[in-house]
């Protein structure tokens, strides 16, 4: 039960800035190379930012993610400007299992719309790359 006396004050300057984050496990029977994983991360950043803009986002705070697997770690981010997606990190050996975390922060969209853009982009790319998703 939540504490009725606890008041969480939010700075009024934070209005209209909404965030959504998701963590999941991805897997594929056929091993995924680091190059392919970099491509996935880049496409994911592009797809989320495009959907946010399409839904009416004024400014992307940031869209960022990391992918961690047995021998590698990649992180990606974009501010939604043309060609600004970066994917950095340590390339590992081809692998079957990955953990993915995405964090989207957007100015001018509802929380629901940020979630919708993030989840839609992720679902489409999971299908394109033939991944399986688990919580």
């Amino acid at each position: 039960m939540s504490n009725p006396l606890k008041i969480i004050k939010t700075n009024p300057l934070h209005e209209d800035i909404k965030a959504y984050a998701v963590a999941c496990r991805l897997s594929r029977e056929e091993k995924v190379s680091s190059g392919e994983l970099r491509g996935f991360a880049e496409e994911l950043m592009n797809a989320i930012s495009a959907l946010c803009v399409q839904q009416g986002a004024k400014v992307l705070g940031h869209i960022k993610a990391y992918l961690v697997y047995e021998t590698g770690f990649l992180h990606a981010h974009t501010l939604g400007e043309p060609g600004d997606v970066t994917v950095d990190g340590r390339d590992g050996d081809p692998a079957n299992h990955f953990k993915l975390v995405i964090n989207s922060v957007v100015y001018g969209l509802s929380e629901e719309a940020v979630k919708e853009a993030t989840e839609s982009a992720l679902t489409n790319l999971i299908s394109e790359f033939r991944f399986q998703r688990a919580p």
Binding site: V101, N103, S104
Partner: peptide
């Protein structure tokens, strides 16, 4: 600001000691 931290994990990758604070913004919530 997101419910699941990304930056802390990235900073950790560079061998630095990181303490994550989640659940809201430290300037208010």
């Amino acid at each position: 600001i997101g419910a699941i931290p990304v930056d802390g994990r990235v900073v950790q990758e560079y061998g630095l000691t990181v303490h994550d604070i989640d659940g809201g913004c430290i300037c208010c919530q």
